[in-house]
Design a protein around this nucleic acid. Structure first.
Lengths: 201, 201
DNA sequence: CGGGCCGTCTGACAAATGTCATCCCGAAGG
DNA sequence: CCTTCGGGATGACATTTGTCAGACGGCCCG
């Protein structure tokens, strides 16, 4: 019996996936979670063979949760199942100790197969995604540039960001300027979008 | 037997939901689709009792598909199942002839129940969402303002938008300015975000 | 028929944004 | 020890953006 914990914030999707996995003779869903924090707690309690984590979750994202689980429950193998195959996500997931990375638009039947292969010791990554992640190179933004760009993502003005991060307006402008150059874009908004689509934030 | 067609672009979610519904004794998934166009075609072929549509789909979105289905296959009742409970989505879905609107973070077990109630002739809408849609009021943007704001959503500069829409730059600036005022925001980016979160684009 | 409203355009102006040069400090690395 | 790099700041500058007033035609509605 392969014991699995499932973390995914959309209840209907979570329930459907749990049902799907429950139908497999050799798989048992021993816990569910709607946030990264919950996932960490449930994994710690139930000590499953596998934790299947979504990335986009409130409170704590799946990648952070993956790192936490790898630290606190090393016997548990972490798989990432996400909507967006962003190169930066893949890279960070791997660094966080995940052993598999799959996107939600692969066929549903592959999920159980993937779980079995991971339990057998394989690591699995969508090959196209792996290529994209490698060719895209690492995140070019410095930590502070990330902060500023993230703060700019909701349409805040420079003054807002400066206030929120306790910086001078000029400094914020400078960081944004270098972020725009490093992302090869023409303005703040393009920079934000590109950084998000690459999983750099 | 309630015959259902399911449209959802993420294959894994679609498969899981189909399996979930297939387990119900009185429900049969007679067709699946990954885009709005496919959904319309499949519904026309299979004449199901119910079409369950996601909104965010490539090629043709679920709301447009709903309108199309209501036109071409009037015997089929359309239900919307979406990630985002945006007021504007709800409003447009209703105008397109949908009889139910549910969000993916309600529990999975409710889905089958909802389908049965819709087949029995009920219309169902998340009450909290209905309240939000009513209190939010209708879309304040004129068609052209929507065009311009949509074109601005990817970070394009004014020049780009003017070129793409065959407008003068001044005109684009004016539309954006009025859009910013109508959305009660401070700049283009906030206007785009607000319009998107309200489902006005 | 006269208002409105929408779409389109122009010109002018103020404010915000993006760029650049230059500076200081501390940490890391040869 | 010197260099490089990241974080932080300043001031000047050009460009872009947002606002406003005004103008014109088309269309619908009272």
């Amino acid at each position: 019996m392969i014991r699995v914990v499932l973390a995914e914030d959309q209840a209907m999707v979570r329930g459907a996936l749990a049902t799907l996995l429950g139908l497999e003779a050799d798989i048992e869903v021993v816990g569910e979670a709607a946030t990264g924090e919950e996932a960490v707690a449930v994994v710690r309690e139930t000590k499953p063979d596998i934790a299947l984590l979504d990335i986009e979750m409130p409170v704590m994202d799946g990648i952070t949760a993956a790192a936490e689980i790898a630290r606190t429950t090393p016997g548990c193998r972490v798989m990432i199942l996400t909507t967006f195959g962003r190169p930066g996500y893949l890279r960070r997931a791997m660094e966080a100790g995940a052993v598999a990375f799959m996107v939600k638009d692969s066929p549903a039947r592959e999920l159980a197969a993937a779980i079995r292969r991971v339990r057998a010791g394989e690591r699995l990554i969508d090959p196209a995604l792996a290529a994209a992640a490698l060719s895209a190179g690492p995140n070019p933004l410095s930590p502070r540039e990330r902060d500023v760009l993230s703060a700019a993502a909701d349409g805040s003005t420079i003054g807002d960001i400066a206030l929120r991060l306790h910086l001078s307006e000029g400094t914020v402008r400078n960081y944004l300027s270098t972020a725009i150059q490093k992302t090869h874009t023409r303005n703040r908004m393009e920079a934000v979008q590109r950084a998000q689509s690459q999983g750099w934030l």
